[in-house]
């Protein structure tokens, strides 16, 4: 009896903590938006962060996109060939990349590459009193440090997802058309007939924008609220990756459900 009660209490505690955390992140997001004015008046600040969040994630995004596309092409070809419709492999590659893999995988990579870096940077600035120093120089760290990093991430994410998708298609093309000899014309035309601009590509971009907002908000939140110690910062970095990944997958389910409901 005791153990059952204890178990229930643990479940309750954890649930409450998660809800509390989500609430805190949403409030923090509101605060970021409130202090976003300077980010757009001095867009150089955001450009700087786009360099760190976007440009520095390029290599990993491009390479992973290429590989994911190649694997999709290979697997799709294997399966479709047994139904005698290997030309449809382009459809399979494109639809899985546009609807799911592009936005989700690029967001997961973004969370572990850029999100963790944002958390570590802000956390360290806090631990070394740089944020306090800024505050004492009458400069609000929310406006000067947090908001530009948030917007840099939000703007970079859809661009990275588009690049991931494009690289994936190229990877699929290379494997199936160049290596396995699928007809090039059929590859593209079947893909074009099946992929719809609004419902596949635009929706995919909307997803990646939402993921970008979630990851950037979580990363800046964890950094800003990190305990100002070495352990605190490293713990916050780990939490950023874990909770961003969970948030991405949960949001993906929600968004997919909404978008599908919109179609049928």
């Amino acid at each position: 009896m005791e153990t059952i009660l204890h178990g229930l209490r643990t479940v309750g505690d954890t649930t409450l903590r998660i809800v509390e955390r989500i609430g805190a992140i949403v409030l923090f997001l509101g605060k970021i938006l409130r202090y976003s004015g300077p980010s757009f008046q001095r867009f150089g600040l955001v450009i700087r962060e786009m360099y760190f969040a976007g440009v520095q994630s390029l290599i990993i995004i491009l390479v992973s996109g290429l590989f994911v596309g190649m694997v999709l092409g290979l697997q799709g070809f294997e399966t479709l060939q047994s139904y005698g419709s290997s030309e449809s492999v382009g459809v399979l590659v494109a639809l899985s990349l546009m609807r799911e893999l592009g936005p989700v995988v690029s967001a997961l990579l973004f969370a572990s590459r850029a999100g963790s870096a944002i958390t570590a940077e802000i956390g360290l600035m806090k631990a070394t009193e740089q944020l306090s120093a800024m505050e004492m120089m009458a400069v609000n760290p929310m406006a000067r440090v947090v908001a530009p990093r948030f917007w840099g991430g939000v703007i970079s994410m859809p661009l990275l997802a588009a690049l991931f998708g494009a690289m994936g298609i190229i990877g699929g093309f290379l494997v199936t058309v160049v290596m396995l000899g699928v007809d090039s014309g059929a590859f593209w035309s079947q893909m074009q007939a099946a992929v719809d601009f609004h419902h596949d590509i635009v929706n995919g971009m909307i997803k990646s924008l939402v993921f970008g907002i979630a990851v950037s908000a979580i990363a800046t939140f964890e950094g800003y609220e990190a305990p100002p110690t070495a352990e605190g910062v490293s713990g916050a970095t780990t939490r950023t990756v874990v909770s961003s990944s969970l948030a991405i997958l949960a949001l993906d389910l929600l968004l997919t459900a909404f978008m599908m409901k919109g179609w049928n």
Binding site: M125, T128, E129, Q130, A133, M136, A138, N140
Partner: peptide
């Protein structure tokens, strides 16, 4: 907050280890 930030322009603070922006 606004008044506080206005006041802080007249205050300087030296932190324990300098807290320079790295």
């Amino acid at each position: 907050e606004r008044q506080l930030y206005a006041m802080r322009r007249r205050i300087g603070m030296l932190f324990q280890f300098g807290a320079l922006f790295t």
